[in-house]
Design a protein around this nucleic acid. Structure first.
Length: 279
DNA sequence: TCGCAAGGACGAGCCCGAAG
DNA sequence: CTTCGGGCTCGTCCTTGCGA
């Protein structure tokens, strides 16, 4: 069975890909103490904490690990013990290393919910590597992570199902995108261009063309989106209110204001914004 | 001078909704 | 159902500006 191309929302929230202030952080902060650890099997494993920005690794030997009914290590209990030993990482972004896919899997922010588990298969030589990222969470970090996951999924799909991959390439005409999506993609594109520190602390940046390739939208289209966004801002378009509207709404808004502006130039008039202007 | 980014103009191909 | 026009995406070409 080919892997899912789009993650369900709850999985995306677990991975920190969806900005949903109502549920996501509430979910992680709302630690449910009703689960019964004594029902779980236990084992002792070594934990390697990789602190991304300090670029340091710390070994915690013989840590008691609870294995839940899904055959997963309960990460929150391990982190609780490590924290109790004086290792501070409050509010850090937490990932674990998956040796099978050779990448870090994002779990969420500290403190983690007890439902966040690490598959037993990720324990290599009785050792589990956990990565911590301390610092401000921002939307672009999430987008970059999302883009990486998408690329991994696409690669896997192309490997497992080359015919559907070809079909996707042939039919490259996409439906009209939503304003929220466009804003995200443009932000991501610019972030690739201006540069960012990746999960290994390495500074990454690239020219606009390559950045557009990474984002998966042609540079010209992104150029066009950027222009629309800039004009929208200039004329006071309410992006927050219209995130789920189609980009055509923004185009129409910009177009009508441009027309108004050119008309007013003739009469020396002054336009103070349209009906969407409440930003 | 060269390379790169930005942005405008234009056209091709496609999508989609309205009208007949 | 078919046709048609408007809008969207994307590509190409060109000009301009800026920094090395």
């Amino acid at each position: 069975m080919p892997p899912r191309k789009n993650r369900p929302k709850d999985e995306q929230q677990e991975l920190g890909l969806v900005q949903d202030t109502n549920s996501k952080y509430g979910q992680y902060n709302q630690i449910d103490n009703n689960y019964e650890l004594q029902k779980y099997q236990t084992t002792n494993i070594d934990i390697v904490i990789f602190h991304q920005y300090k670029e340091s690794k710390t070994l915690f030997q013989h840590q008691k690990a609870y294995i839940n009914q899904n055959n997963e290590i309960v990460l929150s209990e391990i982190l609780k013990n490590i924290k109790a030993s004086g290792f501070e990482f409050t509010n850090a972004m937490i990932s674990y290393f998956d040796p099978i896919s050779d990448l870090y899997r994002y779990c969420g922010r500290d403190p983690l919910d007890h439902t966040v588990g690490v598959p037993i298969s990720c324990i290599n030589s009785n050792q589990l590597e956990i990565k911590l990222r301390c610092g401000q969470r921002n939307i672009v970090d999430m987008l970059i992570q999302e883009q990486k996951n998408k690329e991994e999924n696409d690669e896997t799909e192309a490997r497992l199902n080359p015919t559907s991959a070809n079909a996707n390439q042939k039919n490259n005409r996409v439906k009209e995108r939503k304003i929220g999506e466009v804003v995200e993609k443009v932000a991501l594109w610019r972030r690739f261009y201006t540069g960012f520190y990746d999960e290994n602390g390495k500074f990454i940046n690239m020219p606009l063309d390559n950045a557009a390739l990474k984002v998966g939208i042609s540079k010209k289209t992104l150029d066009d989106y950027l222009l629309q966004i800039r004009c929208g801002k200039k004329y006071g378009f309410n992006f927050n209110k219209n995130l789920s509207e189609r980009i055509g709404k923004l185009r129409s808004f910009v177009k009508s204001h441009k027309n108004k502006e050119s008309n007013n130039q003739g009469y020396g008039g002054n336009d103070s914004g349209g009906e969407d202007n409440d930003a």
